[in-house]
Design a protein around this nucleic acid. Structure first.
Lengths: 134, 134
DNA sequence: CAGAATCCGGCATGATACTG
DNA sequence: CAGTATCATGCCGGATTCTG
């Protein structure tokens, strides 16, 4: 199965029907939830090693507490992250990637590497477009 | 360079400074713009072969005209899609992937394939989480 | 046919304050 | 330390109408 035919089928599956077609698309099941603003960043950080809540806050200083909590819950809900509570005093909570999360991160790596390799080209294209458009 | 160290560095580059750190992150330069609701879908469709505006509308019936126009413009701006106007009457416009767009789609394929392979697992995890949480 | 312009609602995100 | 709860808001995206 070629790349094109694979994805064309993927795209088509779930479209053209009346019962909320987008929600039934296999690809969107995954993409919609890791396309958020912080998901990839948290996954990247946790791919290095498990971290506690406060450590994540410090490692990703731009994120608000609210968004960190929510992103972690979403990742946990999808089975990418495991949450362990240590009933110490004060309590500490450790987040670590599950096997599924590590697997997803592996698939994500190709895209992240591409971004790293090509972002300058993209920025130049953007500038050219904006200049000639003006 | 390992996966973890690669991405940890990527993540850190652009953070911890005051001048709008997120905007300077190489990864976000790319991810922020293909994380939209329709970008991957249009890229997938165009990976098959070039299409005209109306054909794209029919192939992705859920998208509104406004969003199709905007998504195509963004993809063109980033250099992923080339836009060709044929001055016929009535006019027709063809969209095709550039080399950069094809390259990006190649990097994206791994993630799409992962989604196709694992979306059922993710949905099950989601259900389990929701049930035990209730 | 291929858009541009406009209006509008909802959700994602942020800021702040409070808690066990 | 690790969250929850509440409020404010921006902008994403849908529906509709108009144009060359």
């Amino acid at each position: 199965m070629t790349v094109a035919s694979f994805d064309f089928k993927t795209k088509m599956s779930g479209f053209g029907r009346e019962d909320s077609p987008l929600e039934n698309c296999p690809v969107r099941t995954v993409i919609d939830h890791i396309g958020g603003k912080w998901s990839t960043l948290i996954l990247s950080t946790l791919s290095e090693k498990p971290y506690r809540f406060g450590e994540l806050r410090r490692l990703v200083p731009d994120i608000s507490q609210r968004m960190l909590t929510q992103t972690l819950r979403d990742l946990q809900r999808d089975g990418y992250v495991h949450r362990t509570v240590f009933p110490t005093k004060p309590p500490s909570v450790e987040y670590r990637l599950t096997d599924l999360g590590r697997s997803l991160y592996g698939a994500l790596t190709g895209l992240l590497q591409w971004a790293e390799d090509n972002y300058l080209t993209v920025r130049e294209a953007r500038q050219r477009f904006d200049v000639e458009g003006a």
